[in-house]
């Protein structure tokens, strides 16, 4: 079954990298470069997975977007969130888990490891 994947990062090169990593028949890929668009698109697309950067321009950062998704009655049932960020300190990771992310990856990341992680999360559906 094809499901929607939402890729959120303010850097176009990184979005491109994630898109190429996720390229498969399983996913319809969508991208957003800020928190507000990400939230709006998540509501419309009901993605099975969101790959979410933390530091982005605008009023919503990645943690806030994750929290909104994970406290939304509908989305929290259908959407897995992987935080994908350069912020690798313990406090950041803890914050990620506190807002309900399903996995936390620190940049630079291994695309193969990301693929594996996505497989694992979607496979566990």
């Amino acid at each position: 079954m094809i499901c929607n994947a939402l890729i959120v990062d303010d850097q176009s090169d990184i979005r491109k990298l994630i898109m190429m990593t996720m390229q498969s028949e399983k996913f319809e890929l969508y991208e957003a470069d800020n928190g507000e668009d990400a939230w709006r698109m998540a509501c419309n697309l009901r993605p099975c997975i969101v790959l979410l950067d933390v530091m982005m321009p605008g009023s919503l950062d990645g943690f806030q977007v994750c929290e909104k998704i994970k406290t939304d009655d509908m989305l929290k049932l259908t959407t897995k969130v992987i935080m994908l960020t350069a912020r690798g300190q313990t406090a950041d990771v803890e914050r990620g888990h506190a807002v309900g992310c399903d996995a936390y990856m620190v940049k630079p990341f291994s695309p193969l490891a990301l693929s594996g992680l996505v497989e694992k999360l979607i496979g566990s559906e």
Binding site: Q11, L17, T21, A86, R87, K107, P108, F109, P111, L112
Partner: peptide
């Protein structure tokens, strides 16, 4: 320091990520 670490990591994401994909996948 936080900003420097973040900014230095950003280009590394592309370098590390794309090279890994090039090694392991066909394009």
């Amino acid at each position: 320091l936080a900003a420097a670490a973040h900014e230095l990591r950003t280009p590394m994401v592309s370098i590390f990520g794309f090279s890994e994909l090039l090694i392991h996948r066909k394009f």
